[in-house]
């Protein structure tokens, strides 16, 4: 009688394999994009290719997030807290999003003090912020603003878009797009929850601000 199958591990391994295949796919797309005449002779194909690249990147991000969620939940994730300049950290992260924002004609604005230093796990926070940004990119009409403030012993990173906002205030975990399931926000909340300072834990808040759009706040204890 073979041992009990660990279904979680099996799923995680499958996700891992799929992710690695996606990386290969992405490399192929990049090689196609590097063909010089493509843009001039087949502009339609070039733009399809760009859309495909963005979809594959998003898919890759989702799979990576799923793996980290698995690691968090199976408590094999070794949290690595370190100090980071928040401005540069997010500025680097936005590099992943410049192409997609440009193609959607969206402005990405970063209003964060260049001197601000926070402690967090870079991998988790990058995934959490990316998750929120992917959501925002799907909904924003013209711009996404990233800023930060202090409140009650927390550093708050705020990501606002000027889209239609979260679909139902009664069920705020359901964003408006047909593809989203709210899983992303749950992940971001789990990632923040890993961050503890003294007795306080990280939190995620999201709401529709009075002036319209959607706002997600990442609260990091400091």
């Amino acid at each position: 009688m073979p041992g009990k199958i660990d279904i979680g591990l099996l799923l995680a391994s499958t996700v891992h394999e799929s992710k690695n295949r996606l990386v290969h796919l992405l490399q192929t797309i990049e090689q196609l994009q590097a063909i010089e005449q493509l843009q001039s002779s087949h502009p339609q194909a070039a733009s399809e290719l760009l859309a495909m690249e963005q979809d594959v990147r998003k898919l890759n991000h989702d799979l990576v997030r799923m793996l980290h969620l698995y690691n968090l939940k199976s408590s094999s994730y070794p949290l690595q807290l370190d100090s980071h300049g928040l401005h540069d950290f997010i500025d680097d992260l936005l590099l992943h999003f410049t192409a997609i924002a440009h193609s959607k004609q969206l402005q990405l604005a970063l209003h964060i003090d260049e001197q601000l230093v926070l402690w967090f796990d870079a991998t988790l926070l990058e995934l959490a912020i990316s998750t929120v940004l992917f959501n925002a990119l799907d909904h924003a009409r013209s711009q996404i603003v990233i800023s930060s403030t202090m409140a009650d012993g927390y550093n708050v990173i705020r990501i606002e878009d000027d889209g239609a906002g979260f679909a139902s205030p009664a069920d705020p975990t359901m964003p408006a797009t047909q593809y989203s399931t709210g899983l992303g926000l749950k992940f971001a909340a789990a990632a923040l929850d890993q961050h503890q300072h003294q007795q306080r834990r990280g939190q995620l808040h999201h709401y529709n601000p009075a002036q319209g759009g959607a706002c997600v706040e990442l609260w990091l204890p400091c």
């Binding site: 891992h16 992710k19 690695n20 990386v23 990576v64 793996l67 690691n71 094999s76 994730y77 070794p78």
Partner: peptide, 9 residues
């Protein structure tokens, strides 16, 4: 790295 598995760290 292409890995997200904990073995990496």
């Amino acid at each position: 790295t292409a890995e997200t598995s904990p073995e990496m760290v």
